[in-house]
Nucleic acid binder design. Structure first.
Lengths: 203, 203
DNA sequence: GAGTGCAGAGAACGACCGTTCTCTGGTGAC
DNA sequence: GTCACCAGAGAACGGTCGTTCTCTGCACTC
């Protein structure tokens, strides 16, 4: 428990938003705007209006727009990881746990604001000019590959299966985004079932 | 044969570059720069320097940067279509013709300047703000899906196979771009072989 | 109540964007 | 040679970007 006692000049929780709350509001608004319009398509002024946080405060909370971009991507990575893990955790059979990934995608694709994978989008926009963005995206995708590897290993499938399943997931995301259709999630799942079946033959 | 005769004021082919030549040079330079640095990452001034074509001339050849972007994407679409078709045409067996798509990807991925699919990248950058870009990208991907459908139909495979193979190709492109590794082409090909085999069972 | 400090609003700043305009130099016609 | 024209170079323009600064008003201290 954090004591309610405060030092002079420090706002209580009933006063104006504290820094942590503002940070989260700013990142949430930035994430929504960046995802919808691209990173370069959103100015700091628009972020100020959308978040209700003054420019002065934004620049006290973050040193630059680049830093906001970085934090938004890192937060998205955590959210993605949690979403996938909890969808997988609902299943007990190794095969069903793996397929839960595609059901998670299906649920995501039908959301109204779905516009593909934010990491792929950011890489397309800034991967060629921002080493930091490229690195975050690469690391995010590497993480996903490793996660799928643990899931395939649980099943006793050969290691070659995981990258194939990852490629299906990536392809489903871009195809669904561009076509505006959620069907690729089901198509990828059906393909994954075939690949899993083939990988487990003779076991 | 076009007669060598010229009207007054029209340059011969031995003089300064004619409009068609300049158009092609401009589009080539724009394509290279846009692909490497993103569309918004390249200014008209940089395009002028890279192409050696004055701003005045660029704006006589194209009404706006948006028009250049559009023409670059349409030219890339033609080049992609030709590249895929000619790779496929080198094979005679329906199955090999289909797999040639992934060999084409493999050859592309190892090129030094490879940075993923320009259409996926453009969609990530501008799909949310430019209806025209979104439409061109969607139409490009739709074309690819249809092409795969004709190839799977040649083989007598059920229609559900084509979207799965397309998803593999899309996933391979993004995965290879982000990881900086050409391996996804081979992984996608191996997965495609399994899916094709499964689709043809009992035929 | 007077003074102090800090927060927000938004103007200002330099840099760059896409686009247009001006200037200049060279080339062709006669 | 003289003149008209046109292309290129790059300055200029209005707008927007990320970032900083100024001003104002309020809340707190003593």
């Amino acid at each position: 428990m954090v004591p309610d006692q405060i030092a002079p000049g420090i706002k209580t929780s009933s006063g104006p938003a504290d820094d942590e709350t503002s940070r989260l509001s700013a990142l949430e608004a930035a994430d929504r705007l960046f995802y919808a319009k691209g990173i370069q398509g959103v100015g700091m002024d628009e972020l100020r209006t959308a978040s209700g946080i003054s420019l002065k405060r934004l620049y006290r909370l973050f040193p630059s727009k680049d830093a906001i971009v970085e934090q938004v991507l890192l937060a998205r990575h955590r959210k993605w990881t949690e979403g996938i893990s909890s969808a997988v955790a609902r299943e007990t059979q190794p095969r069903e746990r793996l397929l839960a990934v595609y059901d998670f995608l299906a649920a995501w694709f039908i959301q109204e604001d779905f516009r593909g994978c934010a990491f792929i989008n950011s890489f397309g926009e800034l991967g060629g000019t921002s080493a930091r963005v490229a690195e975050i995206v690469r690391s995010h995708k590497e993480d996903f590959q490793k996660y799928l590897s643990t899931l395939t290993a649980e099943m006793g499938a050969p290691p070659a299966l995981a990258p194939q399943l990852a490629i299906l997931a990536e392809g489903a995301q871009t195809t669904a985004a561009i076509s505006g259709n959620a069907e690729p999630a089901r198509q990828a799942r059906a393909a994954a079932e075939v690949l899993i079946g083939a990988a487990l033959v003779g076991q």
